[in-house]
Computed example of a mutant assay.
Amino acid sequence: MSASQAQSEVGLKERFFRSFQHDVAALQEQIDRLNTIPGNERNEAVDQCLAGIDRLSHEVKDASCYIPAYDQRTYSQTIKGLSEILQTVRNTFNPPKKFSFKTRKNAPAVAVSGSMGLDKSEESRGLINTSDTANADSSFPSTALGKVSREEEDTPKGASRNVEEIGDGIRDGPGVRRPSFSNASKINIANHSKLHLALPTSASSATSSGTLSNLQSCVVDLSIATTGSPFAALYLKNIKDSLIVCGQIAGAIHITNVENSVLVITCRQSRMHGSKNVDVYLHSLSRPIIEDCQNVRFAPLPQTFAGPELDHAANQWDQIDDFKWLKVEPSPNFGVLAEAQRVGDEVWRDKVQGGGDGDLEEILQAVRKQ
């Protein structure tokens, strides 16, 4: 093996290790939040956790060609630990029922109670050493984006918040929509075309998590609602020809199938899958990861969206890992957006933030790639 090949293999191992740690931490956060999710939405949240664990398992298998057998076993044990933790949490929602065998005549009754799942021990949660210097998240400042978990102090005892979905009562077309989400626990914006939406401060109670999906030619600004009240996690799926100002995310943002769009993101971790022709204005406290992407251009977060809490927080916006690029040469799938082509602060400030004074088509034209 040549020196360059050896160096490439070491780089792959390190990238996979960082990626795996990030995903494990994100899944642990998702599992920990299951207890705060209303019962009618919990099954979907559990399914998302199961899908994440399954995806991790497949990624370890795909990487087996360059990961030593010992490391593969360690990763597999970690995945098994996550599955056990999830099962334990699920058992608290639906504890195994006690049951008894029917008694035969002249035979004593036999009662049997069972409990499936394992204790949520520190050992099962700590198969990956999160204090390792390779884990960039360990240096994440607690004051930079706020805490991931939040107390729902305003929710009456015995009550649960509902998911408020945009769709009913919110129409596409001219004008800026400002739904309050005052009674929501999370945000779900789906199935819109030519929607211009800006969340007001009253939506800050709904930022435990958010999903934006199936949007085309839309402008969505979440920044005001997340000031001081960041998303725990945010998911972007199937978005085309749009501008999404994601606001602040204390955990991870997962971006899937986004095309011909502009994203403005402040997060702890950024991971993008299957996207192309995207400009990302980013403040990330760990190395961003892309997979199966094409023509993604990165730039630092515009000053308009950079609050004082980010002044001393390290920004790794240009330290990109292309997880599917296995060669020593730099990946052709991403690059840095030239300064001359970046959108100016006057556009962000005057036309975009909080709805601005520009209409939808004007804003999209102003931020599109030159």
Rank of each mutant, 00 (worst) to 15 (best):
V46P: 05
N260Q: 12
V89G: 06
S57E: 15
T266S: 15
W325R: 03
L118F: 12
G39H: 09
G274R: 13
N191C: 12
R349L: 03
I289C: 01
K240L: 07
G114E: 10
Q248S: 12
E339Y: 10
M272V: 00
V24T: 10
E9C: 02
T226H: 02
N40C: 13
S270C: 13
G158N: 09
L282V: 05
A109G: 03
N40I: 15
A338G: 08
N35Q: 13
D119Q: 07
K147P: 12
K105P: 03
I37W: 06
A250V: 04
L215K: 01
W348E: 11
P141K: 12
I128L: 14
H192V: 09
G11Y: 11
A134K: 13
M116A: 14
P96D: 14
A136Q: 08
E339K: 12
K351R: 09
W348L: 02
F305Y: 15
W325C: 02
N183F: 06
N129T: 05
S121G: 09
S205H: 10
T211K: 08
T227G: 05
I244K: 01
S115N: 11
K61D: 13
R90F: 08
N106A: 09
N315G: 13
A313P: 00
F17G: 03
F305T: 05
E29K: 07
W348P: 02
S202P: 02
I37F: 15
R104Y: 08
L86T: 10
S142P: 07
A338R: 13
F17R: 07
R90W: 14
I289N: 00
N277I: 00
A313I: 02
F231R: 02
R90E: 15
T130F: 15
L127W: 04
N91T: 09
I289T: 00
V245F: 10
F334N: 03
D292A: 14
A366C: 01
N277L: 09
S149F: 13
Y281F: 05
G169A: 10
S208E: 07
S286M: 06
S139W: 03
Y70P: 00
E164R: 06
N162M: 12
I67K: 04
L56Y: 12
R55M: 12
D132M: 10
Y75K: 11
D345V: 02
T266N: 12
A6N: 10
D154V: 08
I67T: 04
D350L: 06
P174I: 04
G355C: 01
D132L: 09
I67P: 01
P95G: 14
D62N: 09
F305C: 06
T227W: 03
E164G: 10
N260C: 09
P179F: 02
V280D: 01
L86P: 07
D47M: 06
R342T: 04
E309H: 07
A313T: 11
I239T: 06
Q216E: 08
I290Q: 08
V278P: 14
S19V: 03
I244R: 00
G354A: 00
E339W: 08
